[in-house]
Design a protein around this nucleic acid. Sequence first.
DNA 1: GCCCTGTAATACCCGGTAGGTATCACTGAG
DNA 2: CTCAGTGATACCTACCGGGTATTACAGGGC
Lengths: 287, 287
Amino acid sequence: MDTLETRELRYFVAVAEELHFGRAAERLGMAQPPLSRAIQQLERRLGVSLLERNRRGVSLTSAGEVLLHEGRAALDATTAAARRTRRAGGADSPGGPRNRLVLAVKAAGSHELLHKLLDAYAAEPDAAEIEVLPCGIGEQEGLLRDGRADVALMQAPFNSLAGFDSEELLTEGQIAILPARHPLAARKTLSLADVSDVPDLPLARWPCHGTYPPGPGPEIHDQTQLAQLIALGRTVAVIPDSARAWLWTEHTAVPLTDAPPVVTHIAWPAHSHSLALAGLVRTAAQL
Amino acid sequence: MDTLETRELRYFVAVAEELHFGRAAERLGMAQPPLSRAIQQLERRLGVSLLERNRRGVSLTSAGEVLLHEGRAALDATTAAARRTRRAGGADSPGGPRNRLVLAVKAAGSHELLHKLLDAYAAEPDAAEIEVLPCGIGEQEGLLRDGRADVALMQAPFNSLAGFDSEELLTEGQIAILPARHPLAARKTLSLADVSDVPDLPLARWPCHGTYPPGPGPEIHDQTQLAQLIALGRTVAVIPDSARAWLWTEHTAVPLTDAPPVVTHIAWPAHSHSLALAGLVRTAAQL
DNA sequence: GCCCTGTAATACCCGGTAGGTATCACTGAG
DNA sequence: CTCAGTGATACCTACCGGGTATTACAGGGC
């Protein structure tokens, strides 16, 4: 009568995302009628109508929107529970659990910092094994939430630290990376305004939540593509200072005077309390 | 094969808390054998042993500890999803959802601030209805996590803000509240050391996670009991400055020079994004 | 006007499994 | 050695989650 089953949440989230019972059922690997029935039961048990059955498809009520968001969070929490338990169990050798941490890092981001952190931590007396999980921009939050990672390096303001515990590690300015032969590359410094509306160098667009923001720039999804497009003179990038590490010869870096500073944090789920994690954070804070 | 059901989590948490299949089954309103079987299935599905069956009761393996903590969080998240959806659905009148927020406040804590906040917010053009939910010390976190509350007033360092978004509202010093006839009450200021080891005034003990810390002082669980014990000359309290509001005539307040400042925050679950909540936070930040 | 298409809901059936009862197996206390 | 108390096993039943076939309904094209 009162607690939701994860099965029901899974079903509802699928329907709410597809806004179509048939497609949702297919995605769930089941037939449509039982799915309809399950959602009806869910609505009856909650005493709330979640979906507006329009003549042509389905739309969410306000209560449905709430359940979509809260339900996603709950599903993430349960899969995190399963994953972390499995991992903890694999290390169930006697004489102390052999801990292991999964550290999510944006590919090629904060590379030098990461290197120093891993070296310093490895020198600790009872260091756990660190598995580095490279990921795309903005993926760290999801990885931490559903348990695929235990701790992450995040960069404000690109990543949102909301809901996580974190420790500040490094603050750096940002630079513009330009094609070496472009006129702007000769400048000593630039402002954001200088690079934001250069007709022949439109800012590249990263996918955000699976979709690309509108704009004239090329669509990219990793730093190598970006580097190549810059070298070809097609775009310009605004990127933290540490990116100097991977400059090509055809690139020129120019400091930006008014770009917001980028702060790299080490972040982890607020409720976690493993010794290995505490050690890693302590090491990181002393860098 | 891969996602945990809420039922399984509920069962495991019950067993892990009771460390006894019989009592856990009773608490769950079921018989013991199916519970045993369910836990065995859970262990098989996770491929991990969660409980050490000693022939006199049960103890947790390290993986079991992980699942206990992560599972509690997941259960909280699912009950929060159900509760918040029900509340959002009750307000499903046409012409815009009639929003309602539950604000958790430690009974008698930050009373003046709360009063100002409620007044200021009520004056807002599209103010939602605010239900004030008084609670005990340190209960706010749980209320926010399982959806019984949407937003809370918390006092660092008494409350832990980990895992929540928050906004700072008020910083205040702390005072010692002494029996008026006690010699120390004549002092202009005191230090923590002055009040921490007065033989005839042992510090009172609050229950922490359901159990009392050891010590000589009396066990209390609300502010009225504390006030009375102070008036009787049995104990001394170290409390934020705003507590002057409820001083008795037999009490004397003396400022503490070295007590950590108490910062009152307004805090809410990091992922929430309701308009009503945003309005309340904005109002609070402008106080 | 008609039919045809695509949608969700209903009717009905079946099998897996969650849960109950009775019992067993083991171990420590007296 | 027995007995009390624990969790595990055996077996049965009933519910319900899921499948297939079908209905009900709303638009769009002709």
